[in-house]
Each structure stands twice: as C-alpha cells, then as structure tokens.
C-alpha cells in the first residue's frame, strides 16, 4: 500500500506520543480525560489522554496506538489539532477532515474514525469526572 507523504511523516516522527500516567494513575485526576477505543474491523487500539484546564481548554494531549500506519498518523494528527482548543471545539473535529488531511484511501477510513472516537471518549471521560453533561454517544460517520 502506498502511503501519502504525510502519513509517512507522522509514522516516522509521531507527535505527542506518551501518557500522563498509567490508567490507574490518572483515574482520580479530574484534569485528565482518557479515551481507549478499539476498531472491531482490525483489532487496532488507540489510547488518548487529554489534560484540560479549568476553562475547558485542552492544554496537552498524549496518544498511544497499536495500529496501522494510518491509525498512528490519525492519532498523531488528532493530538496536534486538539491541543489549544476547547473541548467543544475539539468535539467538532470530524474524521473526514483527518481523511482529507492525510489522504487516506477508502479502506483506511475506519482508522480516522478511531481517532475521532478517541477524542470524544476522552472528552466525555473528562466531562463525567467534572460533572458536565455528556452528549448522546450515538453518532453517524
């Protein structure tokens, strides 16, 4: 499979790899939201952790990914995009924007969906921890 330049760049130099601690470390921290999602299509797994300030702005984001090159690139890109945005702005990011930016082929669309889902799951986790209302999880791609 021929990957786009951008996918290869993210693969070779992924941005914001890491975490703010193990799942149990960050469980009680109200400034951290965690999203772990898996793609049933391929068994790939993405973990996104966000650090959110009192005003609801994402100060920092870290990802880990067990997945294909497109999944790695999608999660790396997602962390770049959400840093500095408010949680509501981050929720507005659509997987189609990731597809476009990385020039993903049709079989790789679910990899971008994984990134979108990890953003929503991490934000919802942060919202629940902070007593905010969580939007309906049902959505369409």
């Amino acid at each position: 499979m021929a990957y786009s330049e951008k996918v290869i760049e993210h693969y070779q130099k992924p941005q914001n790899v890491g975490s703010f601690g193990t799942s149990s470390d960050v469980k009680e921290r109200s400034d951290i939201g965690v999203g772990i999602v898996g793609a049933p299509e391929c068994g790939d797994v993405m973990q996104l952790q966000i650090k959110v300030d009192d005003a609801g702005k994402i100060e920092d984001a870290k990802f880990k990914c067990f997945g294909c090159g497109s999944a790695i690139a999608s999660s790396s890109l997602a962390t770049e995009w959400i840093k500095g945005r408010t949680v509501d702005e981050a929720l507005a990011i659509k997987n189609t924007e990731i597809v476009e930016e990385l020039a993903l082929p049709p079989v790789k669309i679910h990899c971008s969906v994984l990134a979108e889902d990890s953003i929503r799951t991490a934000i919802n986790d942060w919202k629940k921890k902070n007593g905010h209302e969580v939007e309906d999880d049902h959505h369409h791609h």
Partner: peptide, 12 residues
C-alpha cells in the same frame, strides 16, 4: 512498542 498501549499494559 514505544507507542503501543498494549505493550504498556503487558509491562504493567
């Protein structure tokens, strides 16, 4: 592995 969440879990 440096970016694999599964490797972390295994090590934990």
């Amino acid at each position: 592995r440096a970016m694999s969440p599964l490797f972390d879990l295994w090590k934990e």
